[in-house]
């Protein structure tokens, strides 16, 4: 489902003396349907960079990043958008939404974009928010003023409400209490059960051991590491 080969990434900071920062070289990984791969490595090793390249948020310098048949390193914006709409979900650490839009609509949006009726989408969104124990009185409010843990759960709900065949999870259990952490881990297990290919970053070691089938240390993708 997810095939990365020979990926490299360099940041060129033109306004800071043209400094070139090589972050990744010769990065390769493959994730099969139903499999969860955890990225590991110290802070700054490039875990988030890999995730962002997988989502098309960062541009690959070279190599191929093929997800569901689309090569993100070469695709047109509209192809990447189509992939994100139907195939590739992303639970980030940050919630970025239009001000004033109610939480329920934020969570229902991925289903609406995939052609669900407004009633069916809202119903599924309600079920997901209830499962994540987000108090019902918050559903009609915009999540912009929510606490970190509440925003995190809105993010998780948005990522799991549509059955994406490929999922990227950036610290999905960070800032959650024990009960909700369990709910998220169950959601991940269920997603694997229906055949989703998952790449995740889990600082929570217990969570990682429970859901990840394999670990990939991105330190191995640092420039020069292979040599």
């Amino acid at each position: 489902m997810i095939h990365v080969s020979n990926l490299s990434k360099t940041f060129t900071l033109h306004n800071q003396g043209g400094a070139e920062i090589e972050v990744l070289a010769g990065c390769g990984l493959a994730v099969a349907p139903g499999e969860c791969v955890a990225l590991t490595g110290m802070s700054g090793a490039g875990k988030s960079t890999v995730m962002r390249i997988l989502y098309g948020n960062y541009l690959a310098a070279a190599g191929a990043v093929v997800i569901g048949g689309t090569d993100l390193a070469r695709a047109e914006p509209r192809e990447i958008l189509a992939l994100r709409r139907s195939t590739l979900g992303y639970v980030s650490q940050f919630l970025r939404v239009v001000p004033r839009v109610p939480t329920l609509d934020v969570v229902a949006e991925p289903l609406l974009l995939n052609g669900a009726s407004p009633e069916a989408a809202r119903e599924a969104a309600r079920a997901m928010l209830a499962r994540l124990n987000l108090p019902e009185r918050l559903w009609a409010l915009s999540p912009t003023t929510f606490s970190g843990g509440e925003q995190q759960r809105v993010n998780v709900a948005r990522g799991f409400v549509h059955p994406y065949p490929a999922l990227l999870l950036d610290e999905p259990t960070a800032s959650l209490d024990g009960t909700n952490r369990e709910v998220v881990l169950d959601l991940i297990d269920e997603a694997k059960g229906r055949g989703a290919a998952i790449v995740g970053i889990f600082h929570d070691e217990g969570a990682r051991r429970r859901v990840a089938d394999r670990e990939i240390d991105v330190t191995g993708f640092a420039p020069g590491a292979a040599a």
Binding site: R52, G56, L59, P77, L81
Partner: peptide, 21 residues
């Protein structure tokens, strides 16, 4: 030119980098 979030989060051209920063 490119996908909006990619251009804003990983700008390639010196001018875009200046604009975003």
């Amino acid at each position: 030119a490119g996908l909006t979030d990619q251009v804003l989060d990983d700008p390639q051209h010196p001018y875009t980098q200046l604009l975003v920063s």
